[in-house]
Every structure is written in C-alpha cells, then in structure tokens.
Design a protein around this nucleic acid. Structure first.
Lengths: 213, 213
DNA sequence: TGTACATCAGTGAACGCGCGTTCACTGATGTAC
DNA sequence: TGTACATCAGTGAACGCGCGTTCACTGATGTAC
C-alpha cells in the first residue's frame, strides 16, 4: 500500500502539474482509502514528499545511466547524461521541480544530493574526461556541480518559460551544456586566472578556420 | 497605498522566505488595513503577484545596468551583468524564485521576459561581443537565452541547495557563466556542428601552455 | 459663509473551501489453546 | 476440529485553521449651491 500511495502522489503531480494539488486527502482519494490511512505508512505530509523526491532521484539516475551506456568517448558520455537529465525534466516537469526546488528538505540533504547514484555516475564520467586530458586532473566534484548548474538552468527555464523562443528545446539544452563543458575545458587549458579580456585576445589570435560540417 | 501594498508583499517574501506566506490577509495586516481594501487596488491575488514580479524585473535591470556601467570590454561587461544577476538572486532569493519560477503567469508572458530592460541591455552587450569577434555575428537572442540559462542555473541551485559544497558562491557563479560564454565562443570558432569528440581532439592538439598568473 | 449632498476609500462580518491531523472505533485476519 | 482472543490496517467523524472573496455598510472628504 505504501507503494500505491507513492504512485498516487506522483500521478497527482503529473496530472495536475501543480505541487499544491498534492494533499493527503487527494492522495488518499486516488488510492481509494481514507486520509487517516496515509498516516499508517508515512509520519506526516513532509515524509510523503521526501519519499517522492527520493524516488525521483532514483529515476533520474536510471535514465542517465541508460543514456550513457555503451558510449565510448568520456565527453560524449557527459553530454548524453546531461541530455538525459534535461529530457527527464521536460517529461516530468513537476517531479523535477519538486525534487530540485523544494523548500521542504532543508536538513540532512547534503546526502540526498551528493550521495545519489546519479551524482556518483556523473562524477565517474568527469573523472574519465580528466584522464583523457580534457579537464585538469583533480576532484571531479566542482566540475560536476558546475555542469549540473548548467543542465539545471536550461531544464528549469524550459519548464518555467516555455513560451520563450528557445527553438528546439533539446537543441538549446545541448548548446548550453556543451558550451559549459567546453568552456571549463578551455579554462583549464588557459589557466583558471585567465580574465575574459585575456580569453578574448587568445580567441581572436587563433588561426582562421574553414567552416566545417 | 498601492505602493504600500506592493512593498508589504515584497517584505513578506523577504522575511518569511516563503511564497506561500504571501496572502491577501497577511499583506493587509502589514499595511494596516482590512483584506477587502486590497481589492480596491488589485483585481485579485494574481494581479498582486504579477505586480510584484514586474517590480522584481525592474530591480534586476537596475543592478545589472549599474554593475556594467563603465566597463569597457564587452565580454567583461557580459560577465559583470551576469554576476550582478546572481548577486541579486542571492540577496533576494524569494523574490528571485517568484519572478523566475512562478506558475501563475502563463499568458502574455512572452513580453514580460523578452521585453524587460534587463533582457535588452544584456542583448546589447552580446551584440558588442559579436562586433568584437568573440561570438559569430547574428541575432543575439539565442546567445542571451543560453547565458541566461547558465546564470539562472547556478543562481537557483545556490538558493535551493545552499548546503552543497559550492565553495564561494560567487566564484562558482563566475565559473559557470564564464565557462558557458567561453564555450559558446569556441563553438562559434570551431563551427556549430563540432561534436564533443572533435572538440576533445582539437583541444588536446593545442600546443602546451606554461601556467600563467 | 453655511448647508446639503455625492463620492468613494476603507470596514466588519460572513460565505464556503480544502487543508493536516486526531480520535475512538470496527471488523477481518490469523494464532493459541 | 472448534472456539476465544489479540492484532492491527483501515474507518468515519470531527477539530481548528487560514485562505480568497463578497457584501452591505460607514464616515471622512470635497464640491455645489
């Protein structure tokens, strides 16, 4: 029954697209029991929400892992994982919103994000990129966090502002994440203290390149 | 009195750090009038919220404009504007949240974002970068949207997940936005069809560089 | 200058609503003898 | 095999709450004569 309750909560999120619509009473209605029964499986409403969030992070890891399976090049793997992340967010916008923007979960959440499998698997791809000479060798955590920011930025804006002229959403997501990854790599190459002005000078001093593709 | 109501709503957001705490009744309480009086100045609750959002976007433009005033290099200007954006978000997290993540404003909002002065001023800096050979010359809108995504990503994660080991928040913000800008520039240089694999090959083929700074 | 009146910002009370949570309870299930 | 009983998931009713919004109203203000 606990599982049924969780499914009902997720269904409510998906169908109403409104986190405010997830109430103990509404969930109980869907499951077909009375509101007090919920308390036999969850201490209170917050516990229910937390369980939903944990579930969402698990799903996220699954789609990201599936997307990067069998991809050889580490930077391609990073991109595929990022794209799967955004795709999940677009397919389950309210679940994504709840998991990443919730105000509820304030304490003990250091774990909930950094210890997710999704985070760990992404860090593995980053480490592989370091070994391949794309990023400077070191702790992958800062790189993971910066790329995560990028992915989250485009994902949440695509959800919150769908009417903005993004063009194809996944193309926009690819641009943002790809650019951030490339930019971090260049920064590691040029040295982290490089200023925007110095970067601009270096860029414009590169030999002209015939358009490819 | 309309102004007092708006200020009260913003004050509630700032002090309770909870968008749910902004109710007609609470706002009326702060202003020192009865709830029905609010309706003399705003059609309903949504109208009040929309007015607050508009106000926040105006403030955003002000801090961004102030931050880039007198900065000569266009890419530096872009960075300064982005940093001011994130700084504003961190200083007024609930206002920022409301303005960028609200579910309320669905219709007619194409204007509310794209026609803000903040958007226009940022687009000007991007155009200047194009003229300086940093980005490929063309419509600045896609570049603006992509950099906005980056800034929004780091800003909203810093707000929502403060316990994550970001290091200095503004440093993290600088990294993410700087990397995205540089990455987009490199992509324009290499050609937009360049794959991650091709980029990695190009990067590792660059001549080694003595560490600077 | 003095009176009658229109205007209208703001009031006080009430409406119906859905919420989270509690409480004593019921009634099926499975075990112990 | 048959009876008595403990267990406990789920019930039904109720609690108090804050919400958005409405309604007929009051009472100060300023104008017209």
């Amino acid at each position: 029954l606990r599982g049924e309750i969780l499914d009902a909560a997720k269904k409510l999120l998906a169908e109403t697209a409104d986190a405010g619509a997830v109430s103990i009473r509404a969930v109980a209605d869907i499951v077909g029991v009375t509101p007090p029964s919920i308390y036999l499986h969850f201490a209170d409403k917050d516990a229910l929400i937390e369980a939903v969030v944990a579930d969402v992070f698990t799903e996220l890891d699954e789609v990201m892992t599936a997307a990067s399976a069998g991809v050889a090049h580490p930077l391609e793997r990073v991109c595929q994982q990022g794209m799967a992340y955004v795709r999940f967010a677009l397919e389950s916008p309210e679940h994504y919103r709840l998991a990443t923007m919730a105000t509820h979960n304030q304490i003990g959440d250091v774990d909930q994000v950094l210890r997710t499998s999704a985070f760990a698997h992404f860090a593995e791809s980053i480490t592989a990129c370091m070994d391949a000479g794309i990023f400077a060798v070191g702790d992958p955590t800062p790189v993971v966090l910066r790329l995560w920011s990028s992915a989250h930025g485009i994902a949440s804006l695509l959800i919150a502002k769908p009417y903005v002229p993004w063009g194809d959403p996944m193309d926009a997501a690819y641009d943002v994440m790809g650019a951030t990854a490339q930019g971090l790599a260049i920064w590691d190459y040029l040295g982290r203290g490089t200023t925007p002005t110095q970067f601009a000078e270096w860029l414009t001093s590169l030999p002209p390149r015939a358009a490819e593709r």
